[in-house]
Design a protein around this nucleic acid. Sequence first.
DNA 1: TGAAATTACGTTTGGCGTAAGCATG
DNA 2: CATGCTTACGCCAAACGTAATTTCA
Lengths: 302, 302
Amino acid sequence: MINYTLKQLKYFVAVAESGNVTEASEKLYISQPAISNAISQLEETLNTQLLIRHHAKGVSLTPAGKEMVSYCRTLLSHAEEINGYMIQHSTLISGTINIGCYASLGPIYAPKLIQGFTKLYPEVNFKLFEGDIEELNEALVTGKIEMALMYDLNNNCQIESTKLAKISPHVLLSVKHPLANRKKINLMALQDEPLVLLDLPHSNKYFQSLFEQYDKNPFIKHRTKSIEMLRSLVANGEGYALMNAHVKSNTCFDGSELISIPLSDYATPISLVISKVLGVKLPKRCEAFLEFCIKNFNLDNK
Amino acid sequence: MINYTLKQLKYFVAVAESGNVTEASEKLYISQPAISNAISQLEETLNTQLLIRHHAKGVSLTPAGKEMVSYCRTLLSHAEEINGYMIQHSTLISGTINIGCYASLGPIYAPKLIQGFTKLYPEVNFKLFEGDIEELNEALVTGKIEMALMYDLNNNCQIESTKLAKISPHVLLSVKHPLANRKKINLMALQDEPLVLLDLPHSNKYFQSLFEQYDKNPFIKHRTKSIEMLRSLVANGEGYALMNAHVKSNTCFDGSELISIPLSDYATPISLVISKVLGVKLPKRCEAFLEFCIKNFNLDNK
DNA sequence: TGAAATTACGTTTGGCGTAAGCATG
DNA sequence: CATGCTTACGCCAAACGTAATTTCA
């Protein structure tokens, strides 16, 4: 059980350094009896006499006091260090940002954002987490991550999201597909073809909901949770796929080619957002990153 | 400037470990709002959010909070360690005793006392200081030493002494001296011989005062501050000397022989004492040593 | 007599507990 | 509606300041 306070230690060290309670009290802007009292208490809780009081000639340290001073110095400087470190990281743009990315968005947006930001603030580094929407919400709320780059689903009232951009659904087709040279594609043009469904929570429902306006159900040939598997299947002619973002690479992992074409159908608007837990005060670095993301996407839109 | 308290840190760590303020408050026997409040204050002083509060589901740590917990743990355990160390040394008989010895008494009494005590309490070690009375008083009052083995001169009202034994003056003579076989010697028997004076503060005055009862002044041939020089001079026939303790060795450093014979004259009583600063609470080890010295000398006197 | 400690005492701060309020699952 | 957080409020202890007292050089 610790029964002393950091304040007592601070006063004690000041007195030890001055050799004189009065001088210490002037340095600390605290009255002399207050200091005297604090040290008496410290002595009592430690059951150890630390000072020898001289009349009209200040004080000197007992051997135990001398030991104690050096202990106090290290403890106090350690405490200072912690304080400085925490304050610094709430104020300066440095340290680690723990950021989550929705699996299909991460590879598209995260690297450029991170690179751009660390160019401005080289003291910041990032720790990336990937997951589906549920996992990201969970990670935010349990403090595993401070922010997440994901779709705006508004399904969790503890989460606060900032819109970065509107996302439009795209169709993925093999380059060999007859419609591969279209500028836009309507879902009905593909109604008899097999669909390769991205089978992540929310996204699977979202893509299927696109068919509701036509009262049709798609013919789902494959389901996968992996973006790259999806792209490979499409590039190798296993069907078409729907994605909520525009991947710029036309080559998938096995070298086959595919293409991404905007969907011309009506789609319930969906946004790319950066999210945080509602009401939490973020470290400065995170606030700065949020600002940066907003600015960065506004520039893109121009 | 440190603006947090160890108590706040303690509460915070407890909450972090419980994941739950209520549980922590039960462990700490402190009301739940008190803890909640303390942590809010801590967050404010650090300008950093440490916890994410969930409704009806406890709390979780933010990344900053996670860092802070580990800092707190090391700081608190350091503080515990200091506390434990200081309490232990005020309670247990271990650690270092800083003891001063009057130059001429040290070699005679200190080694046996130290050996006897460390046999009883092997955890204790000694740091020895030697000096004349003034130096020892100074060392006591400035906290350089906790106790001193010296003569009782009662000349410093800040010092508190415990009598260990009465000391009687002895005459040192060369074994070749005609009076070397006496059991006791009267000063007048030596009145025409040269005196080798131990020229330490107080002792020089004391020895010269012995001659006052005869209205004589001694013939001082040599003055020295060193006991061994004194003994060598005497052993080599340069004169007799007076000492306030009985040295048991008859051989001095150069191999010459000398003898120590009690003085039969009246001498103002002088005592061997162990001294400390008036009113200071000594560590347990020092109190134990004081007790040991008292007991040890009482045994000797029987 | 002056310097520098402690003691005495009144004020105020702040830490704690009780009770009420609020939000979520 | 039970859980578990925060807010509100009152109380008391403790920290601080002022002033008086003590003690030694």
